[in-house]
Nucleic acid binder design. Sequence first.
RNA 1: GGUCCCGUAGCUCAGUAGGAUAGAGCAUCAGAUUCCUAAUCUGAGGGUCGCAGGUUCGAAUCCUGCCGGGAUCACCA
Length: 585
Amino acid sequence: MNIFADFSDRIINAVKALELKPKEGGELDLSRVAVEPPRDPSHGDIATNAAMVLSKAVGENPRALGERLAAALAEDPDVAEASVAGPGFVNLRLGNGFWHARLGEMLLLAGDYGRSKMGNGHKVNVEYVSANPTGPMHVGHCRGAVVGDALSNLLAFAGYDVTREYYINDAGAQIDVLGRSVLMRYREALGEDIGQIPEGLYPGDYLKPVGKALADEYGTKLLERPAEEALKIAKDTAIDAMMAMIREDLAALNVHHDVFFSERSLHAGNGGTIRSAINDLTLKGHVYKGKLPPPKGQVLEDWEDREQTLFRSTDVGDDIDRPLIKSDGTFTYFAADVAYMKDKYSRGFEHLIYVLGADHGGYVKRLEALARAISEGKLHLTVLLCQLVKLFRNGEPVRMSKRAGEFVTLRDVIDEVGRDAVRFMMLYRKSDAPLDFDFAKVTEQSKDNPVFYVQYASARCHSVFRQASEQLNVRKFDREAMKAALHRLDDPGEIALIRKLAEYPRLIESAAQALEPHRLAFYLYELANQFHVQWNRGSETDRLRFVKVNDPELTHARLGLVQAVCDVVRSGLALVGADAPEEMR
RNA sequence: GGUCCCGUAGCUCAGUAGGAUAGAGCAUCAGAUUCCUAAUCUGAGGGUCGCAGGUUCGAAUCCUGCCGGGAUCACCA
């Protein structure tokens, strides 16, 4: 249960019961009434701005209106105290019994606690990673992969029907380069001395096995085939090999897509799919032949004024019209995107989400324009831009030279710090803010490392249960039995912890709504912190220890609280894509 | 030059749908603890929320304009 949604209903009912009449007549507008946790916990458990929002329309002093509302809400058996504060906030403090009941629900729901129906089964497509199949994934891909994947998890948990999609850029010039690079490696595998890989081709060693595979399969026969045919074979083999490698890297990062969509498939059959998509746009009046003006404020020496087939995207919100067909008659990259988005639309998605690197910022407007043109504004499209990740090793920036083929691969990072640390840290920052990633820090076993701190909370929960089993000689603690004892929880720290747990459903919904999976990571850190604080209080004050050998009922109650913390930490970490360990090693 | 993102404590960043005295971690300072249930604990100081207007009962949050930092800008993908 989202307690804020619940109390929103109760508060609206209380407001209606006051039978307020707007001065201007008509219905009272309740849409601006907010029910939320107060900034400062000392104010209470629930706060509403209702009196302030309504006072003007009703023509009543906000504090006086607040007093009336507070008096009405004080009648609610779950409300221990209702007061008016500041400019007219109504603060509610809820009784312990209310919190015990919430905790009881959490124990029964277990892993489903926090799951929401907010999405109502709406079909959402999340496209992320979409790295070119020209080499292994490098760290630059990492953030988008994690953000996209965690976002997908989050949306699914919030009740959306999510499809995770990867667009394979397996057409175009860079794939020709890949094919030629592989042919070099092929000749090398046949024993030829190829010397240095020429400028402009991919120099990485990872293509050597592909060349060898070609040599093993074809021997020298490929050399005798027409160049075009050999290149095609090399490209096909290379794309398959690269995608296999990328899928392995993704699996190592716990990222799994539902659909891998091939750009090449759109070009198949002489580009029929793309042609028909462009025709569709043409019929809707969005296409013309013309010339683009040269970019302003930028000196281009080789600018050539050419006529192209253009998408009149300026009609639908873009800054400049976009080429669909180049002057040589071939399709632009964007032309394939037209067909691709049309395909997504025809598959029934209502919302398309693209997780892209910040360097693709310039692409956002044309995608938005395209969505409008294709669907007459029905298709909702959001682009999430992920800023750069800067790597550090002991405070020193890690240098990479892409030209020399030296880059830190995704696999390198996972192997060094572990999948969970990578995933958590990629979410421990708003995605539109740059992120510093220090190898040393994320493997540190201390409070300073949020990954460790959150996972340790999970381990500590299990540790408490192990201790309890031993001391009370109980093999397994039953959830019902724990639930039955919850009335024994009355320590302010315990109640505060329940309150934190009670925020989880609202957090899920608001993070999903805002498409901000990083909020999960921050919430988990806060929850872990509060749990550790309570544990430490027990460490200092014997009375507050979770396990009390001579009071099995109280122990059951406190274990119920620990169990709920354990469940939520596990649930949240699962959405992040990390494990909730039972012990730290 | 256009467009997009960012600007919050010394540093790194949160800030939940416009709410109350703007928060956390690190660092600094002052205490506690050498114990153990498992990887220390408690407290303090520190802010013109880049600047200036505007909307609002109320703005770090929304709008406009500037300043500063980054990304990007046809015929690539």
